[in-house]
Every structure is written in structure tokens, then in C-alpha cells.
Design a protein around this nucleic acid. Structure first.
Lengths: 187, 187
DNA sequence: TACGATCCGGACCCCTCGGTCCGTTTCCTC
DNA sequence: GAGGAAACGGACCGAGGGGTCCGGATCGTA
């Protein structure tokens, strides 16, 4: 390593953090259609700075979505450890739904079609974790055979989009819909 | 009525028909986000002509959606006449879903928030017809209590949007999802 | 056929958005 | 503190969409 180590400047680091934080906020409110100008403004930064941190809007949004997908994957993996897989599945849906009431990042991550390697990987990891949990619920005879994690994704993300479009922010209502989705795949 | 009856010109009538037909086509393919330039091009007409027939894009799209909402309302009313309300309900969902495979007009009509009086009226009429059918299915003990036509709309239109985003055009798949939605509200 | 009313079409305006560029500011090092 | 490298930010670009406008083409009538 040479002596001329090109350390990143302090303000650059700070701004990168601000941009990601702002993007997280805006995506939570608006979903994957959040605009770069708004994110930049919220971060108190010019658009140029945003594009110095992320080569594309796609990368920026992707970074936010991946974070949320990973959170869900870990939660699903933990759920798969529980003795009653069906109960764990339902709790997982309800938990995720409740959070969606005020933050649509997760459903945005489910419905957003991105070809970015990181996003694709995060999505696949999530499907694997979910399929593992669902396989156990099916083995226990509590979940309808032939149903896949993709089916749950379609039902869940679809209802989430509709509720969001309605502007519905009542967690109880979101919980109720999580229950309906669970019914859809019940044995 | 005065003698100077200002009859509409023949070419104007013809163009109005072409515009509506083109809009119907494009909305079937792209949903409510169909663009006016594309509709005009498909109709073989200038944008000016489109805006002479319909004051706003909203009105144009609305006209297409209303037509489809009315079709569904009539179908639902006919379904409500059948002896087995639950069966009629499921058939209705499956029928609607199959059509959605190649034409997303109906789900677009469900998810599109319009304040145009005609659209609002068509939407309300549809909800009434659907609620009547569902009330009978509930009275027969086949459908879960507390579920409303709005719930079915959210589940159905939500899944439709997701499947469309996936580019899925296989009617069998759409039928399968209609079945899942029916399960969600089964007693 | 000739004429005026009606209608056509696409150039035009304005706005938003993703993305680029460069004069200026800020930071780090010596 | 001074100098140079790095980063900033917003003006700028082109694309695309909704909506307007008016010179010119078209229709219906006398």
C-alpha cells in the first residue's frame, strides 16, 4: 500500500449517509417511484451529490430495498425455527403487514422488478427462506399444497399496493388483510 | 327547436368512435396509465382530436373504465340470481380473472382512483351488486362474516396488478389466483 | 359548385424526471 | 496558512407527457 492513501473526505462520507437516510425516508412514503430530486432535497444536497454516491437511481432505490428484503429474510429464517410453522407463518405475515401501514418499503421491494445483482440476490434469498418456512407448514398439513412463496408475494404485495393507494394507514386494517392472505393459503 | 340544427359532422362522429376504440385497446394493454399520444396514434388521429372528444385524459380513460365496470356489475347482478350464491361468487371471480389474463381494463378500473361522477357512480353500483351477492353467500354460511366487496376488490385487483407486472398471461394461472382469493373469504 | 361553418392535426407550451458537467467551495496535508 | 486534490450543487440537457392553438383541410348546404 502506497503512502498516498486516498482517504475519503469527511464531508463525502457524511453526505453519503444523508443521501441513504433520505432515500430510506422517501421510499418509505412513496415507494420505489420516489424521485431523485425529492431525495436530494430531503438530504439537503444537490442532485450531483446523489449521483456521485449512486451511479443510477436504480442503485439508490435498490440499496434501500435490499436492506428491507434482508430484514424480512432474517425474520423468516427465525420464524422457520419455531415449532409450529403455520403459526410462525401467520405471525410473520401479520408482523410484516403491520409495519406496512406506515412504511411501504417492503411491499415496494416485493413488487419492484430490478435486475441489479444485489437486489436479485436479496429477492432470491427471501424466497428461499419463505419457501423453507412454507414447506414446513405444508408438511404439517396446515398449508395448502402447491402454494409457493411467489403466490404469497403476489397476494401480499398486491393487497399492500391497493391499501397504500387508498391511503389506508390503520394497522388493524393491515392486520386484517394479512389474515385474509393467510386464509387464502390455509389447508 | 330552431331550424338551424347544428348537426355533428360525419367525420367528427367517425373520429370519436375511433378514439374510444383505440383507448379501449390501449387501456386493455397498458391499464389506466395509457398515454394520450399513443391512443391518438393508434386511432390514426391527432392529439387535438382526442381532446376535442374528451376534455381530459381522465375523461377518456374514465369512459373506458366505466364501460367495463358496468359489464362487471351486470354480471354480478346476474350471478346474484343463481341459487347457490357462493358458487356464483367463485365463478364470477374466476370468470373475471380469466379475462384479466389478456386485458387488464377491469383491474385498472378497480384500482384507478377517479373523482369523475360517472366513474364514481359505476364503482358504487358495482360495490352494491357485489355486496348483495356476498350477503347471500354469507347468509348461506359459505362466506366469512365481516368481509366486504371492498376486501374482495383489494385482494383481486392487487393480485391482478402483481400478475400483470410479472407479464403473466396464462389464464390458468389467473384462475388459480382467483381460487386463492376465494379461499381468503371462505367461511 | 361554391362558400362558410366545422373540424383536423401537429407544432407548441409547460412541467417533471433521470442524468451530466463544470465553476466554485471545502477539506486534507504539508 | 497555503496549495492542490476532492467533492459540491445547481444549471443544463433530452425525453416524454398533458394540454392548447390556429392555419389549413373537409364537410354540409344552397
Amino acid at each position: 500500500m502506497s503512502a498516498t492513501a486516498p482517504r475519503t473526505r469527511a464531508d463525502a462520507v457524511r453526505n453519503a449517509e444523508r443521501v441513504l437516510a433520505a432515500a430510506t425516508e422517501v421510499v418509505a412514503e412513496k415507494g420505489a417511484e420516489a424521485g431523485v430530486p425529492e431525495i436530494a432535497a430531503r438530504a439537503g444536497v444537490g442532485k450531483g451529490t446523489v449521483y456521485r454516491c449512486f451511479p443510477t437511481k436504480e442503485h439508490l432505490i435498490g440499496a434501500v430495498l435490499v436492506e428491507r428484503l434482508r430484514w424480512f429474510t432474517e425474520t423468516a429464517q427465525a420464524a422457520a425455527e419455531r415449532p409450529d410453522a403455520w403459526e410462525a407463518f401467520v405471525d410473520l405475515l401479520v408482523d410484516a403487514a403491520e409495519r406496512q401501514a406506515g412504511d411501504c418499503t417492503f411491499s415496494a421491494g416485493l413488487s419492484h422488478e430490478s435486475v441489479l445483482p444485489e437486489v436479485v440476490a436479496a429477492r432470491e434469498a427471501m424466497h428461499e427462506a419463505m419457501d423453507a418456512l412454507m414447506a414446513r407448514a405444508q408438511a404439517a398439513g396446515r398449508m395448502r399444497e402447491g402454494v409457493t412463496s411467489r403466490d404469497v408475494k403476489v397476494l401480499f404485495a398486491g393487497t399492500a399496493q391497493m391499501l397504500r393507494a387508498d391511503g389506508n394507514r390503520d394497522p388493524a386494517e393491515w392486520r386484517r388483510y394479512a389474515g385474509l392472505v393467510a386464509n387464502a393459503v390455509r389447508a
